[in-house]
Design a protein around this nucleic acid. Structure first.
Length: 937
RNA sequence: GCCGAAGUGGCGGAAUUGGUAGACGCGCACGACUCAAAAUCGUGUAUCGCAAGGUGUGUGGGUUCGAUUCCCACCUUCGGUACCA
């Protein structure tokens, strides 16, 4: 009987659906295991072969764990809010929901073909009110919570309010920060107006509204979070991003900086990913110091990690946007400074980053050195950023590269403070050497000097030990339509009030008020136009009804829905809670999470943050959401390239140029390039022959030249094994109708190739549907795994797919005769040799899946089939366990064969075959080279 | 610049508490079947050499009886990040 995968797949899918075999319920009698994939954003282009790589891996893992007796949660859903659908809506007027629904339908069809074991009854779509009701609910929890630093956890805001009512907020409170708001007593608090109270609470709420600097993208008409900006451009669309101040919502993720850092030590993620998060959080230990400004009644606070170098501080530099800027400028410097500040203003972030010019300007003021009393000038410069530390630095040109360059350019004093002669090759910023020119620090090693100096400045109350983070509070407002509405209304809303203007008046306007839980979901209304308003508001501001209700017109960012979706899967249809207590207690957290590394500092950080808040508030029982994380590599396209040129050649009459485009076969081209000077190699001979045939005269090879080449991507569908179908190219692009092709000796035209991202414009997209139609879903799954280690990026190249396809047919043939349509297995007892083959395979497969080495487990199956074939083994007792072991990889063929062996249930619900120790020991010695067997003599 | 990961045949890749390098697959070559082709099956395939034998895991050193694996320096590629004080 032929192995007919199309028929088998159809039959299996019907059976699975009828029996509902992948539906899962909480079962306290079984250990739980949660296998999660990062859910996709349903884009209009559909899936290409790169997308399912992680899904296939996770599916194999989930199926394996199920066979091992775990109750496995393995769900799928859609991250359905987002910019592309909205951009499309702006262009065409189509409601994003329509676009999104269509895309989801297509994704589902494609995924169904691959044979995943998702429990679709738990599907989530972030754009559905039933789902975003709970996104809004969590937002309310964030809004109604504050971070209690004493207990180091989030608490309901009521505990803060009652603390204010009892004690107020005074300097005795350990965590009181005067720079945020002035102290007040309990009585003061009781006397405050609601607006005043709310203003204070906004400094504590985990979700809060403030007037701060944001990344504004004019082209998208909205604000972006730091991780959505790459190289000064928007991640989506690549539009320029500028900094501007705006009133908008943020999440106080900075309170969790330390815990987010610490938690990384307890989870199994790749080192590079953890390192990315650590860098993003950017903890640095140092001290803050105050410098008194001569003649003016205030001091400037700086942050430094190198207090030891204080005696080498010869000037201060403040950021151009520093709040004391104007007060520091003296009469004499006024003109120069205004010009400089105007220049800085004119520079975009992109310019600043690309050309790092050393620029700066003297303010005219001086600060006093706290120990020497010397007057040191206060400068301003672009390289000091307002957003980090205190926005001011003490410059130590002797020990800091940037300060040094700055001092050199502007002729400022340099005092050497560290003797590094003992440390050859140390850079000026290394923390090595002995202190010199530093009074009481002289002779100390750098690390000791840091401690000593901190002690001194703390005694003198001019500074203190401090830890700084690079992490900023997360921007949470988007001036867009296709996102979750905020469950917030305002007590009074002034329609003329622009979000770009700071509203710091104390009138009753503008107090954000949380909706009641019973009012959720606040459903996204219809709008006439999806265009941003152009004045910094979302399209919702165009909806008169929405505005008169005084609802917040911004919507939540893309990461809102994806920050907690893994919890919704635990109890996806619950109308009364984001998930029931029982479900949350049972499933707890994600055991293994498959997804791309591109979400390292976005989704993965926000999820951890949300999860920790929910943990603090008692809703979840773990404080990290994803125990183990696997980053599957990207599958790149393998683009084919052809090379076009025009030829110049000399005939007896004179020089001629070809006027039709000429394409040169890649191998001929390589041979031409090899040695153009000699011009006797194969390539030139072919070229010469070609010209002679074209112009029908003999040509001196030294008179042939080709113009500079243009590399052109060509549709991979008209290229087979790097050989171009010339006729197909002529019809594909009409300008090539009469093009000339220089082919190689064997008459073939070969193409170059390059691995790059799959995209329509590069004609290198491979659709899984096509692969499945040709080879079957099992083959597709196994081949994706066989391509290489799961974490590695690699180009899609279907040259090797025949190997996997052969394997499946060979496997099939162990069960069926080719011609006679007869089953082949026999019921006799297997020999020891046959058992050995079986057991070492089972053992290897089990170990490989546990360690996620799916590529080598596919190899193990191939070896096994080859060995059984050469042994002539068709015994049920060998084949049956093999079918089970293969079932995670190839669910369709194994289901069919399992039934053929006379079983009525599903192979996917049996147990993973056990391994017999006896054969393992023997096989280890008898088959040393068969499977990775390096065995001692 | 800094941080992280990785360099093995013609190609994708195996093998690391240090113990026969190149499993498995592709490709290629030869053979079988066929009038023929495709498909399938079998054999071979790191490299130099007729052979004995030598050389080989990015480069150069080191530790060791023994190194793809450990240590030092360097080179290359990929990913991340960047005036972060």
């Amino acid at each position: 009987m032929e192995y007919n995968f199309t028929e088998i797949e159809k039959k299996c899918k019907e059976f699975w659906e009828k029996e509902n075999i992948y539906k899962i319920t909480e079962d306290p009698g079984k250990p739980k295991y949660y296998v999660l994939d990062m859910f996709p954003y349903p884009s209009g282009a559909g899936l290409h072969v790169g997308h399912p790589l992680g899904y296939v891996a996770s599916d194999i893992y989930a199926r394996y764990k199920r066979l091992k007796g775990f109750n496995v949660l393995h769900p799928m859903g859609y991250d359905a809010f987002g910019l592309p659908a909205e951009q499309y809506a702006i262009e065409t007027g189509t409601h994003p929901r329509v676009t999104t629904d269509n895309a989801i339908k297509r994704y589902r069809e494609q995924m169904d073909k691959i044979g995943f074991s998702f429990d679709w009854s738990r599907e989530v779509k972030t754009c559905e009110p039933e789902y975003y009701k709970w996104t809004q609910w969590i937002f309310l929890k964030l809004f109604n919570s504050w971070y209690n630093r004493e207990k180091d956890k989030a608490e309901p805001i009521e505990t803060l309010v009652s603390a204010f009512e009892t004690w107020g907020a005074t300097k005795e409170w350990k965590y009181f920060d005067e720079t945020i708001h002035p102290p007040f007593s309990a009585d003061d608090w009781k006397g405050f107006s609601p607006k005043q109270k709310e203003r204070i609470l906004q400094f504590y709420r985990l979700a809060f509204r403030s007037y701060t600097e944001v990344n504004w993208c004019e082209a998208l008409g909205c604000v972006l979070a730091n991780d959505e900006v790459k190289d000064g451009k928007s991640e989506r669309g690549g539009y320029p991003v500028t900094r501007r101040k705006m009133r908008q919502w943020s999440l106080r993720i900075t309170e969790y900086a330390d815990r987010l850092l610490e938690g990384l030590n307890r989870i199994e993620w790749s080192e590079s990913l953890k390192e990315q998060q650590r860098n993003w959080i950017g903890r640095s230990e140092g001290a803050s110091l105050e410098f008194w400004v001569s003649g003016l009644e205030f001091s400037i606070e700086v942050f430094t990690t190198r207090v030891d170098t204080l005696f080498g501080a010869t000037f201060l530099v403040i950021a151009p946007e520093h709040e004391y800027m104007q007060r520091l400028i003296t009469h004499e410097q006024r003109e120069e400074m205004d010009a400089y500040l105007a220049y800085v203003e004119s520079r975009s972030d992109i310019e600043r980053q690309q050309e790092k010019k050393i620029t700066g300007c003297f303010t005219g003021s001086y600060a006093e050195h706290p120990f020497t009393g010397l007057k040191i000038p206060i400068w301003t410069a672009e390289y000091v950023l307002a957003g980090y530390g205190t926005g001011a630095i003490m410059a130590v040109p002797a020990d800091d590269e940037r300060d040094k360059k700055f001092a050199e350019k502007f002729g400022l004093t340099v005092i050497e403070v560290i003797d590094k002669t003992m440390h050859e090759g140390a850079t000026i910023e290394d923390k090595l050497g002995k202190m010199i020119n530093s009074d009481f620090l002289n002779g100390m090693e750098v690390v000791d000097a840091i401690e000593e100096m901190i002690k001194r400045v703390e005694e003198m109350s001019i500074g203190k030990r401090q830890i700084n983070f690079r992490l900023r509070d997360a921007s949470y407002s988007r001036q867009r339509y296709w996102g979750e509405p905020f469950p917030i209304k305002y007590s009074i809303q002034d329609e003329a009030d622009s979000p770009f203007v700071d509203d710091s008046s104390d009138d009753e306007a503008d107090i954000p008020v949380a909706l009641n839980e019973s009012e959720l979901p606040l459903v996204l209304p219809a709008v006439e136009s999806y265009k941003p308003t152009g004045d910094g508001r979302s399209p919702l501001a165009n909806n008169a009804d929405w505005v008169t209700q005084r609802y917040e017109t911004d919507t939540m960012p893309g990461y809102a829905g994806s920050s907690w979706y893994y919890l919704r899967y635990m109890d996806a249809k619950n109308p009364n809670a984001f998930a029931s207590k029982e479900a949350l207690d049972y499933w707890q957290d994600v055991d293994i999470y498959f997804g791309g590394a591109e979400h390292a500092v976005g989704h993965l950080l926000y999820s951890r943050f949300w999860h920790k808040v929910l943990f603090d508030l008692g809703y979840v029982s773990t404080d990290e959401p994803f125990k183990k994380l696997v980053n599957q590599g990207m599958i790149q396209g393998r683009s084919s390239k052809i090379y076009r040129t025009f030829l110049t050649y000399r005939t007896v009459i004179g020089a001629s140029v070809s006027n039709e485009p000429i394409y040169i076969s890649k191998d001929v081209l390589d041979s031409l390039r090899q040695d153009e000077g000699i011009r006797e190699n194969e390539g030139w001979q072919i070229l010469r022959k070609f010209v002679e045939e074209t112009v029908h005269i003999e040509v001196n090879p030294f008179s042939i030249f080709y113009e500079p080449l243009i590399e052109i991507p060509v549709d991979i569908r008209i290229v087979k094994n790097d050989v171009l179908d010339i006729e197909a190219l002529r019809t594909w692009r009409l300008e090539n109708r009469n093009a000339l092709f220089i082919v190689n000796r064997s008459g073939e035209f070969t193409c170059g190739h390059e691995g790059e991202k799959m995209s329509k414009s590069k004609y290198n997209v491979v659709n899984p549907d096509d692969v499945i139609a040709r080879y079957g879903a099992d083959c597709f799954r196994m081949f994706e795994m066989f391509l290489g280690p799961i974490e590695q990026s690699k180009p899609w190249d279907d040259k090797g797919i025949s190997g996997v396809s052969n394997f499946l047919r060979k496997f099939w043939r162990l069960f069926y005769e080719d011609v006679t349509f007869k089953q082949k297995w026999d019921e006799t007892e297997p020999t020891d040799a046959e058992f050995k083959v079986l057991y070492k395979t089972i053992k290897k497969i089990g170990e490989d899946i546990e360690s996620l080495s799916f590529n080598t487990s596919v190899s193990a199956f191939m070896i096994c089939v080859n060995e059984l074939t050469s042994l002539g083994c068709h015994k049920r007792k060998v084949l049956e366990p093999l079918v089970i072991a293969l079932s995670p990889f190839a669910p369709f063929i194994t289901e069919e064969l399992w039934k053929a062996l006379g079983n009525s249930d599903s192979v996917h619900q049996t147990g993973f075959p056990k391994v017999e120790e006896k054969y393992l020991v023997e096989s280890a010695f008898n088959y040393p080279v068969s499977i990775n067997g390096k065995v001692r003599a």
